[in-house]
Design a protein around this nucleic acid. Structure first.
Length: 341
DNA sequence: TCTCTCACG
DNA sequence: ACGTACGTGAGAGAC
């Protein structure tokens, strides 16, 4: 593509000097030759085949006839769980072909169904809480969609007038903020001029001044103390937070912002998991908690216990850690993991 | 074992 | 001038 077809005279190299060919790079070249799209399709299919279709059946346990992951409790620096051998926290869901793989995850027999329970926009609610950001707390309290509410504020229009592009941009900012994204990063992500991205971010901080204040106070705290902490006081130490190297320091500063948010969400779901496990045992229920995917819990539920388990799960997830901001849980039921979503 | 890429939240 | 969004695990291919 680069040496022979010369599709991109300014082709970027990776830090070891090879041509970068990640999806973002290829998408920008898609109009130059039909082979680019073919490569993307080939990549999608070979990824699904090698990582899931061929690999998962090899990991079926002889005794149980099922796959069993191992969760790492002290692996991820933020306090999240990690899942390996097989990783059940990265089962495909975003593409049509990927979703076919989700359908393979089914309950043990016809007396059971799968129930999936998801926290709704948990990290945004947590940042609103930790920052005590009035406008964001108010939007949550009023049951508004946070991305739409953000778009209305940033673009200065009525909630009902928000276009799908405005909502998409606002959603990207909401996520980007959690990670400490720059105007450059947002412009790359959305394919808009950097100047426009900078305006969106400026408006964002004007509408949500509490978030801006929280971010700078969190970085100050980290510089002073050498660590940041979650709602449950889990610490992440940041040795580079006072580095003289701006790039290295920048990484540490983004970690300082992200870790309390991602980590507090992890704290919350872990408390919920303990309380749910204890309650299922106390009531001697047959249903089992089978998986955790960061903001989602999956259960194998006996038909006769469906309503009882759903009510326990929803209640324990919502009340795991008492907060000002309302915590919403979305639940679904089905005969496979895709249907349960 | 390392690098790159890509699956997920 | 420089780099530029966080956290993971796994497979392919090169060495």
């Amino acid at each position: 593509m680069f040496d022979h077809l010369k599709l991109d005279p300014k082709a970027k190299k990776t830090k070891t000097g090879q041509y970068a060919t990640g999806e973002d790079v290829l998408l920008k070249l898609a109009h130059t030759s039909p082979i680019v799209e073919d490569i993307l399709t080939f990549r999608e299919l070979t990824k699904l085949k090698s990582t899931y279709v061929d690999a998962l059946p090899q990991l079926i346990n002889r005794k149980t006839g099922r796959v069993h992951t191992t969760y790492g409790q002290a692996v991820a620096v933020t306090g999240r769980l990690a899942s390996n051998n097989p990783n059940l926290q990265n089962i495909p869901v975003r593409t049509e072909r990927g979703r076919e793989i989700r359908k393979a995850f089914i309950p043990r027999d016809e007396n059971h169904v799968l129930v999936s329970a998801d926290y709704s926009q948990i990290e945004l609610r947590i940042i609103a809480e930790m920052a005590k950001e009035k406008n964001m707390l108010e939007a949550s309290a009023n049951g508004l969609d946070i991305h739409t509410a953000t778009a209305a504020k940033v673009y200065g229009v009525d909630i009902k007038e928000v276009t799908s592009t405005q909502r998409r941009n606002a959603k990207a900012v909401n996520f980007g903020i959690i990670y400490g994204q720059s105007a450059f990063g947002l412009s790359q992500n959305l394919g808009i001029p950097r100047k426009e991205a900078a305006e969106i971010i400026d408006n964002y901080f004007m509408q949500y001044p509490g978030i801006k204040k929280y971010m700078s106070e969190t970085i100050d705290f980290a510089k002073e103390n050498g660590y940041v902490e979650t709602i449950m006081k889990r610490r992440r130490y940041l040795r580079d937070i006072n580095s003289a190297n701006a790039t290295v320091r920048g990484f540490a500063e983004r970690n300082a912002i992200n870790a309390p948010i991602q980590g507090s969400a992890a704290d919350m779901i872990k408390v919920a998991m303990i309380n749910i496990f204890n309650e299922l045992n106390a009531r001697k229920l047959k249903s089992k908690m089978t998986m955790q995917v960061h903001d989602e819990l999956v259960f194998e539920v006996h038909q006769s216990e469906l309503e009882e388990v759903k009510s326990i799960v929803s209640e324990k997830m919502r009340t795991a850690i008492p907060l000002q901001v309302p915590i919403l849980v979305e639940m679904g039921t089905g005969n496979n993991w895709l249907e349960a979503h």
